[in-house]
Structure formats: structure tokens, C-alpha cells
Amino acid sequence: MKFHDLLLMETQRERESLIAIPIIQSALAGQIDRQDYVAFLTQAFHHVRHTVPLLMACGARLPARLEWLRTAIGEYIEEEMGHQEWVLDDLEACGADRDQIANSAPAEATELMVSYAYDTIARGNPVGFFGMVLVLEGTSVALATRAAETIESSLGLPRNAFSYLRSHGDLDIEHVGFFEQLMNRLDDEDDRRAVVHAAKRFYKLYGDVFRTLRQDAQTLAVAA
């Protein structure tokens, strides 16, 4: 069995638990309000802004035997540069205060997820960072475009309020094929174990972002 197939099999339960989270199911059914969507985008900004720094940190820590993977990271960096600005554009289109959100602090769940990503790279096996890539890109492909269509229809927001979701649904389809090729080239068991372990953790951590989203949406509403 190729490693990418094994990775999906080993993390199936965690993936299903994430997709089953009530607010995600509500989004797919078009049953969330503007406050929920703004809260989601706010937390997306707080982790997306770390994507390029995390990729850079991962690339710097890879051993010489994984030079091919470092080269691939360079391609990822080029693709991911500036995506946090897309999120802020969407927030502005929703009527949110762009500067206020850009200067805000992340929710606890988002902070912990990002911190774990940095810790995986710095303290553990840096290849484990690709467990986070699996979770974020895989979730985008599975949910982003469908969610954008139902939310846009139910909330009556302008189309330019969904550039992040729509672009990542489409863009990450290409990324998933690229990711699969990279994972299948990993032939070291420690590297493979690191990716599986991290992916399981990131499904839980990313799930916690969604599980606490409405709590943070209420905080935003009070602040506004």
C-alpha cells in the first residue's frame, strides 16, 4: 500500500470526527449566520498568516536526504504567499473591521494549533508538519466550495466575501495531488510515523477551532 493511502486510512476516524462537528454540518446546510462566518474567517486569518513562516521553518529543519522535499516546500511557499490578505478582504466584504481583526489575538484553540505546528517542527520531526497540510488542505477540498455556495445563498453576502473559501476549494484540489506524490516518496518509517501522528493531532486541534467558534463569535459581537 502506498503511504498516502495508508495515511488516509490511519486518520479516517479523526477526519470523520472533524466533519461531523455540528457547526460544520450547519455550514454545509446553509444554517449559520453572519456572526459565525466572520468568526470562522477571523480564526482562518490567525492560522493562515503562519502558513508561510511554518513552511519556511520546516524547510530549514529538513535533513539533506530530504532535499527534494525542501524544493517542494519552495513551491508551496510561492503558492501560499499573501493568502491572509484574501481572508481580510472577505472580512471587509462582510462589513467587519479589517484593521481590528488584523490586530486581534487568536482564539485559544487557534493559538494552540499554531503553537503545536511550530513545536512539531522545532522539537520533533519536521516532516510531521505535513500532517497539518493534510488536515487543512484535505478539509478545504472536502468542504470549502460546498460551504461557500450554501453560506452565500443563505446569508445574502456578496460573492467577494467568499474568495478565501472558493479559492481554497479549487486551489487545494491541485495541492492534494501534489501532496499525494510527496507523501508517496517518503520511504523512512520515522518520517511516515511523524506525519500520521501529527495528522491525528491536527484533526483534533483544528476541530477544536470549530467546536469553540460560536463562543468566539459571541465575544466578537460583544466587542463590536
Rank of each mutant, 00 (worst) to 15 (best):
L28P: 06
A29Y: 14
A29E: 15
A29V: 01
G30V: 00
G30W: 15
Q31N: 12
Q31Y: 04
Q31I: 04
D33P: 08
D33F: 04
R34P: 11
R34M: 13
Q35C: 11
Q35P: 03
Q35W: 05
Q35Y: 09
D36L: 01
D36I: 05
Y37D: 10
Y37P: 14
Y37N: 04
V38N: 04
V38S: 00
A39P: 02
F40K: 00
T42Y: 02
T42M: 10
T42V: 07
H46P: 03
H46R: 08
H47T: 14
H47Q: 14
H47A: 08
V48C: 01
V48R: 05
V48L: 05
R49N: 07
R49V: 02
R49D: 12
T51W: 10
V52G: 00
V52C: 04
V52A: 01
P53G: 02
L54H: 02
M56R: 01
M56A: 06
M56C: 07
A57R: 13
C58P: 01
C58Y: 15
G59K: 06
A60F: 12
L62R: 08
L62E: 12
A64S: 05
R65K: 09
R65P: 01
E67C: 11
E67Y: 08
R70K: 10
R70A: 04
T71H: 08
A72V: 15
I73S: 00
I73A: 01
E75T: 10
Y76F: 11
I77S: 01
E79Y: 02
E79K: 03
M81D: 12
G82W: 05
Q84I: 14
E85V: 09
W86K: 08
W86C: 09
W86V: 08
